[in-house]
Simulated assay, not measured.
Amino acid sequence: MNVLVAGGTGFIGTNLCAELHDRGHEVTALSRDPSGVDLPAGVETAMGDVGAYDSIAGTVADHDVVVNLVALSPLFQPPSGLSHESVHLRGTENLVRAAEEGDVERFVQMSALGADPNGDTAYIRAKGVAERVLRDSDLGWVILRPSVIFGDGGEFVSFTKKLTTPYVTGLPGGGRTRFQPIWVGDLVPMLADAVDDDEHVGNTYEIGGPEVVTLTEVTKLAYEADGKSVTVLPVPMGVAKIGLSAVGPVPFVPFGPDQARSLQMDNTVVENDVTAFGRDESDLKTLPEYLGLERETESVTTKRTA
Rank of each mutant, 00 (worst) to 15 (best):
P166M: 03
P181K: 07
M190W: 07
A192Q: 05
G173Y: 00
R176H: 11
P172D: 01
F179H: 09
D197C: 11
K162H: 14
W183Q: 06
L187M: 12
K161G: 07
L163P: 10
L163R: 05
T160F: 15
G185Y: 12
G170Y: 12
R178F: 05
G174W: 05
Y167F: 11
G174T: 09
W183F: 15
T177W: 01
D193V: 08
T165I: 05
V188F: 13
A192P: 02
G174I: 04
R178D: 07
V188Y: 09
T160N: 13
W183A: 11
G173A: 11
G170V: 05
F159Y: 15
L163A: 15
T177C: 04
T164C: 03
V168S: 01
P172I: 02
K162P: 06
Q180V: 00
D197L: 15
T177L: 00
T169A: 04
T160P: 09
P181T: 04
G173F: 01
M190I: 13
G170R: 14
G173K: 10
M190P: 14
K161M: 08
L191H: 09
T160L: 14
P189I: 06
V188C: 10
W183G: 00
M190L: 08
G170F: 12
L191D: 02
A194V: 01
G174V: 03
P172R: 08
G170K: 12
G174L: 01
V184Q: 12
T169K: 06
V168D: 08
A192L: 05
V184P: 09
A192K: 06
D193R: 11
L187D: 02
I182V: 14
R178K: 13
I182Y: 02
L187R: 10
Y167R: 15
T164N: 11
F159W: 14
F159N: 13
G185Q: 00
V188I: 12
P189T: 07
I182W: 03
D193E: 15
G173S: 05
R176S: 12
P181C: 06
F179Y: 15
L191P: 09
V195M: 10
F179T: 01
G170Q: 13
L163E: 09
F179S: 07
R176G: 06
V188P: 05
T169Y: 07
R176L: 11
T164P: 11
P181M: 06
V168G: 07
G173N: 11
P181F: 09
P172A: 04
T164G: 10
V195L: 13
T169Q: 12
P189F: 08
A192I: 00
P181D: 03
F179M: 04
P181I: 03
T165H: 13
I182K: 02
P172V: 00
T165C: 08
D197T: 15
Q180K: 08
I182P: 00
Q180F: 05
G174A: 00
R176D: 10
A192N: 07
T160H: 14
I182S: 10
G175S: 04
R178T: 03
R176N: 03
Y167E: 14
D196H: 12
K162F: 10
L191N: 09
F179N: 06
P189Y: 11
L187V: 11
A192R: 08
T160C: 09
A192G: 10
L171K: 00
T164F: 01
D193C: 06
D193W: 13
K161E: 09
G185E: 02
I182L: 09
W183I: 12
D186R: 01
V195S: 07
V168C: 00
P172T: 00
T165V: 11
D186N: 05
Y167I: 12
